[in-house]
Simulated scan of single mutants.
Amino acid sequence: MILKNFEVIVLNSHGVGQFCNIKRLPALGETLRAWNWRIEEDGGKGTNVSVALGRLNIKTAYIGKVGNDLWGDLGEKWMQDAGVDTTYMYRSDEVATGTGLVMVDEDGRNTIVDGDSSSEALTVEEIRTAIDHMKHSKIFITGFAIPEALAIEGAKMAKSHGITTMLNPSPLPEEPMGDLSFIDYLVLNDVEGKFLLDIPQNTELTAHEIIDRVREKYHCGSVIMTMGSKGSVGLDAEGFWQVEPTSVKAVDTTGAGDGYLAAIAANLIQGNDIRTASEWASKYASLTVTKVGTLRAYSPLKEVDEFILGLQ
């Protein structure tokens, strides 16, 4: 077996995003006019995180499955251009690479409809082969844009090799996740936090109460919850911490969460603790929302450092 050494492994979906602009988010049952319909450099959660990491100079490898089609070719090109290894981006004639629709309103907010993922056809054995060949990597990142069972099984495999594991439970899981003691960092937003607790969204709980209950329920090492313009909070064995928001003019929030996830991993790779990493990631995500697009919003490390320096 020839082993490959990487800093971060990403197991999640690739799919090409179609975008349109709308005046406001539609109400249930409403037909709303859209304009500027286009195909953007948006590759779904796995591609987004991988490209963001690559541009932050992190040695990254991607695991997923795509079709032998134009959308798969685009994903491979985008990742390779960012320096990401795509050895385990499995190609198959039996699947079509997925697409999604992102609707962006006049305030830069977005609603995303995810199509079927070609990673539905990814197998446990293919994941095992990839992780076994990269078992000396440092961080493993996954999420639920691929079948939840595959993401969880991949995280368990990575943890068995001593790799630090990160999970973003998005899109929201359709089945109970059970014990997540093999997850070192559970990264979610406030909507996902309440969903994972099986409580209504209008339940009045503080952010600290939400993540405390999530960590107690799922037994993961740390829980980090983003709250958009309200910043983020975290909880680990040492206690709570809070990150204040960075004030910027948001023009497009698409992909900010994926960038945040990548930025935390990149900062941990640099040797920082999770509190420092989440502060840096918050500033990184703030930079992404000042730009239109997804992959185009993931800046190289030098530009990020200059942006953060300018905030001081």
Rank of each mutant, 00 (worst) to 15 (best):
I141A: 04
L150Q: 09
S50R: 00
E192A: 02
I199L: 04
A256P: 13
D69C: 12
R213Q: 13
V95Y: 00
R128S: 14
G44C: 05
K283C: 13
K135N: 10
F195A: 12
T87Y: 11
L11T: 06
V102Y: 07
V16I: 11
M157E: 09
L287N: 13
S137E: 02
M89T: 07
R33A: 06
K283G: 13
V51C: 01
D236G: 12
F195N: 12
G154M: 00
E244V: 14
P169N: 07
V251C: 04
L196C: 08
L3P: 02
L53P: 01
V214N: 03
S50H: 00
D105K: 00
A121L: 00
K194F: 05
D114Y: 15
I199E: 04
M89I: 07
Y298T: 09
I210C: 01
T31E: 12
L32Q: 11
F19S: 09
L11G: 00
I39G: 10
V233A: 10
I183R: 14
I269A: 00
I22A: 01
V8R: 04
A149W: 11
I9M: 06
G67L: 03
S119T: 02
D184W: 11
H133A: 14
V124H: 14
A27S: 15
Q18N: 14
V292T: 15
I112P: 06
V223Y: 11
A151H: 13
A155L: 10
G98A: 09
G193Q: 01
P200S: 05
R24I: 02
L205G: 09
I9Y: 05
T97E: 05
P26A: 08
G108M: 02
H136D: 15
S13I: 01
G108A: 00
N57M: 03
L186M: 15
Y298Q: 04
N68V: 06
A237P: 09
L287E: 10
D132N: 09
I264H: 01
Q201H: 12
F19C: 11
L205H: 07
R55D: 02
Y62M: 05
M157R: 05
G43A: 03
G98S: 10
T290Q: 15
L32G: 09
D107E: 00
P176K: 08
W35T: 08
I39A: 13
G15L: 14
G67E: 04
S160F: 03
P173S: 12
E7I: 11
